[in-house]
Design a protein around this nucleic acid. Structure first.
Length: 465
RNA sequence: GGUCCCUUCGUCUAUCGGUUAGGACACAUGGUUUUCAUCCAUGAAAGAGGGGUUCGAUUCCCCUAGGGACCGCCA
C-alpha cells in the first residue's frame, strides 16, 4: 500500500472561506488518521487574480485552526514547465490536438447554443483536421481529445459510483493560446507528481474529475481515490462564497470564536460519529473516516458555533484561555494593559462561565480594564440617596478589614441587608452599578475580590460624593 | 436547457428492513441563583408526496415535487 497523501489546493484569489477550511480539515484529518501526509498547494496560476496577501492569509488561517501541512507549500506556478511538458506529450501521443478556433468563433457558438436552449459543447472542429489546414496567423490552443463513446464511472468514496456519458465531456483546453496550462491539466500533473493518493474536495469539482481522470488514463498514471464532499450552504441554501457574510475564517475570529471550537463545529458539519459531539484534536484524528460524511449539503448555524465556543471556553484551563484572550484583544481590539493582566487572569475563573465568546469575556471584564467607569444612564439613576447611604456604610465596613474575600464580605453584606430591611438585591445592585457601571455582570463577590480593596474604595468614594 | 447530486425535528445529525424514530444546538416551561448568565429538570418538534418489493419500510427500487452543483482560454 502506498502511503496516504492528501492535499488542499486553494487559489489565492481571496480570503479562505469556511467551506475551504472544512475541506482542508477533512483532508488533514484523513491523512493523519492513516498516518499519511497532508500538503498545501497554492494554485496561483491565475496571474491576474492571485495575490500574495491572500496566500499568506490562507497559510495563517490554516495554522490558526490547527491544520498544518507537511513540508513547504507547493507553489503551482513554479511547476508550469512540467505541466507544459505533459501537454506536449499528450499532443505527441495523439491524446490532444491543436485547435485554431478564435475566441470570437467560440463565443458565437455559445451564444447560439443559448438561444436554441441546447447545451453548449465545443464542436470538436479541429479534432481530426490535419496541420496543413491550419491558419498561419492564429495561435492555437491545445485541447484534450476527450472520449466520445461509452461512459465513465467515478468511484467516489462519498458519492458512490457516479456514471456519466463520455460525450457530455467536451474536448477541454489544456494549454491556452499563450502557451500556459489550464486548471485541469495543472491539477492532474501536480497531484500525480505529489503522489497524492486521496483527493478530497468539494463536489463542485465532480465534473472536473472526469476530465482529470482522462488525463491520468492517457498518461498511464495510477488513479488517485476521489471523495467529493457536499458543499456548505448559506442559510438561504446557496453555495457559500467569499462574498457571503460570515463566510471567511476572519469573520469568526473577529467575534472571538476560538479555533478549537470552530474546528469541532466544522468537523461535525456534514460528518458524524455516532452521537458524539465533542472531539478533541486527537479524537478527531482517531475517529475521522470518509464513511461518516453525509451526502447532503449542510447549512451554517451560528447559534451552534457559539454554543460550541461556549463549551470550549468553559472547559479550557485559565492559562490557555488567557493566552487566547490576550491574542484576541491584541489582534482585534486593544491590548490588555500589562498592569491589568494578572487581575484578568485571576478573574477568568468566573468570567468564562458567563461567556459565549472571547468578545463576551472582554465585555464582562471591561470594569477591570477601564479605570474610568462608563455609567449606563438608566442604571445610574438607580443610585438614589438610600443607595448612596448603603454604599457609604459598606465602604466604612470594608475599610476595617484587611483583605476582601468572600468570607469577610459576607457578614458585612448580611448586616446591611438586616439594617436596611432589604434583600440581597437591595445591597448587591447599587454596589454592582457603582463598581462596574452596569446592573448586569459577574457576581458581586467576584467583582469586589477581583478589583481589590484599594480600587473598590476608590470607586465607592467617587460615587458617594 | 443539459449532466450530476441531494431530501429524517427550525439547524447539525443517529438509524446500515422490525425503535415509543435517538442525541446535540436553538426554542418553551419550571427549579436553583444576588442581576445577567450558568446549572438542573421537563416539554414541544421530523422520515417531501405517490407507487412498488417485503410478513414488515425512514431504511431497497421507480416516478413526481422541491433544493443544489457544474456547464470559462477561473481555479
Amino acid at each position: 500500500m502506498k502511503k496516504v497523501a492528501t492535499r488542499f489546493a486553494p487559489s489565492p484569489t481571496g480570503p479562505l472561506h469556511i467551506g475551504g477550511v472544512r475541506t482542508a480539515l477533512f483532508n488533514w484529518l484523513y491523512s493523519k488518521s492513516k498516518n499519511g501526509s497532508f500538503y498545501l498547494r497554492i494554485e496561483d496560476t491565475d496571474k491576474e487574480r492571485s495575490k500574495d496577501v491572500y496566500k499568506e492569509q490562507i497559510i495563517k488561517s490554516l495554522k490558526w485552526i490547527g491544520v498544518e501541512n507537511d513540508g513547504d507549500e507547493y507553489i503551482q506556478s513554479k511547476k508550469i514547465d512540467d505541466h507544459i511538458k505533459v501537454a506536449n506529450k499528450l499532443l505527441k501521443n495523439g491524446h490532444a490536438y491543436k485547435c485554431y478556433c478564435t475566441n470570437e468563433e467560440i463565443e458565437e457558438q455559445k451564444k447560439r447554443a443559448k438561444q436554441k436552449k441546447i447545451p453548449y459543447i465545443y464542436d470538436r472542429k479541429w479534432r481530426d483536421k490535419s496541420e496543413t489546414e491550419a491558419p498561419k496567423d492564429i495561435k492555437p490552443t491545445i485541447r484534450f481529445k476527450s472520449k466520445i463513446d461509452g461512459s465513465s464511472v467515478l468511484k467516489d468514496l462519498v458519492q458512490g459510483d457516479v456514471k456519466i456519458d463520455n460525450n457530455t465531456i467536451e474536448d477541454f483546453i489544456i494549454l491556452r493560446n499563450d502557451g500556459s496550462p489550464t486548471y485541469n491539466l495543472s491539477a492532474s500533473v501536480d497531484d500525480h507528481q505529489m503522489d497524492i493518493t486521496h483527493i478530497i474536495r468539494g463536489d463542485d469539482h465532480k465534473i472536473n474529475t472526469f476530465k482529470q481522470m482522462q488525463i491520468y488514463l492517457a498518461m498511464k498514471w495510477e488513479l488517485p481515490t476521489f471523495a467529493h464532499i457536499p458543499l456548505i450552504h448559506t442559510t438561504e441554501g446557496k453555495k457559500l462564497s467569499k462574498r457571503d457574510k460570515a463566510s471567511t475564517l476572519d469573520d469568526y475570529s473577529t467575534i472571538g470564536i476560538i479555533p478549537e471550537a470552530l474546528r469541532n463545529y466544522l468537523l461535525r458539519l456534514g460528518w458524524s460519529y455516532k452521537d458524539k459531539e465533542i472531539f478533541t484534536k486527537e479524537e478527531s484524528i482517531k475517529y475521522f473516516n470518509l464513511e461518516g460524511i453525509g451526502k447532503s449539503p449542510s447549512k451554517l448555524d451560528m447559534s451552534r458555533i457559539l454554543s460550541m465556543n461556549e463549551h470550549y471556553i468553559k472547559n479550557m484551563n485559565e492559562n490557555d484561555l488567557y493566552n487566547q484572550l490576550s491574542k484576541y484583544c491584541e489582534s482585534y481590539k486593544s491590548k490588555i494593559p500589562n498592569e491589568k493582566s494578572e487581575k484578568i487572569k485571576k478573574s477568568l475563573s468566573f468570567l468564562k462561565n458567563k461567556a459565549k465568546s472571547l468578545e463576551d469575556i472582554l465585555h464582562n471584564s471591561k470594569y477591570i480594564i477601564d479605570d474610568v467607569i462608563n455609567f449606563n444612564k438608566e442604571d445610574s439613576k438607580l443610585i438614589d440617596d438610600n443607595a448612596k447611604k448603603i454604599i457609604s456604610e459598606f465602604s466604612i465596613s470594608i475599610s476595617k478589614i484587611d483583605r476582601l474575600e468572600r468570607n469577610t464580605l459576607e457578614p458585612i453584606i448580611n448586616d446591611l441587608i438586616k439594617s436596611h430591611n432589604t434583600n440581597f438585591k437591595g445591597i448587591g445592585q447599587p454596589l454592582r452599578i457603582t463598581l462596574t457601571g452596569s446592573k448586569f455582570g459577574p457576581g458581586i463577590y467576584d467583582i469586589i475580590t477581583s478589583l481589590g480593596k484599594e480600587e473598590v474604595q476608590k470607586r465607592l468614594a467617587a460615587k458617594i460624593v
